[in-house]
């Protein structure tokens, strides 16, 4: 709080409309920006098939949605993806930059996870349901934009989560 410069007074100040307008505009644009990415779909309408391409109508619900990304991160941990794609892995396997070799949009990422890629990436479509691959693709898509410290912070919070076969009980 302002202190010191004290018991001041009066003098009529003109209503600074421009400043008020700018502030309001900023606040509302920030608000509008927040909505879609904040949506949380938890009912039974999850996708059970692969994306059909870049115009798949289901894409917007997954592309930048924070909830789906977060769920994807959870499964990324569960299925042990971090064994090859941890934050400390080599670029580009750690997904810290956006130069994905097979494309960085969800349909391509989905394909990489589901069908595997040459050079050691196995196919997961028989092991992981479609909905979770969607979510993991969304997560991977978000990683280059994620602050590295924040990614590490999230990983640490999930340290107790089962990581594939290495999980051995609660964090002590």
């Amino acid at each position: 709080m302002g202190r010191g410069l004290g018991t001041s007074d009066d003098e009529k100040w003109r209503l600074n409309l421009s400043r008020v307008a700018i502030a309001l505009a900023m606040a509302s644009s920030l608000g509008a920006w927040g909505c879609d990415s904040e949506k949380r779909t938890v009912d039974a309408t999850a996708p059970v098939t692969a994306p059909t391409g870049r115009s798949d109508p289901r894409l917007p619900a997954y592309a930048d949605n924070k909830f789906q990304q977060s769920q994807g991160g959870l499964y990324f941990t569960w299925y042990g993806c971090g064994q090859c794609h941890s934050q400390s892995a080599q670029r580009p396997q750690n997904f810290s930059t956006a130069n994905f070799r097979y494309g960085g949009d969800i349909p391509f990422l989905y394909q990489s996870i589901a069908d595997g890629r040459a050079g050691g990436m196995p196919a997961y479509k028989d092991r992981v349901p479609a909905q979770q691959i969607w979510q993991m693709a969304s997560y991977v898509k978000s990683l280059p934009k994620t602050n590295q410290y924040l990614r590490r912070r999230e990983d640490l919070d999930q340290k107790g989560q089962p990581t594939g076969t290495t999980w051995s009980g609660a964090v002590r």
Partner: peptide, 13 residues
């Protein structure tokens, strides 16, 4: 937290 932490409360809610 951790329910309100970065890993379990995504977004800005």
């Amino acid at each position: 937290p951790p329910l309100s932490g970065p890993a379990y409360a995504p977004g800005h809610r």
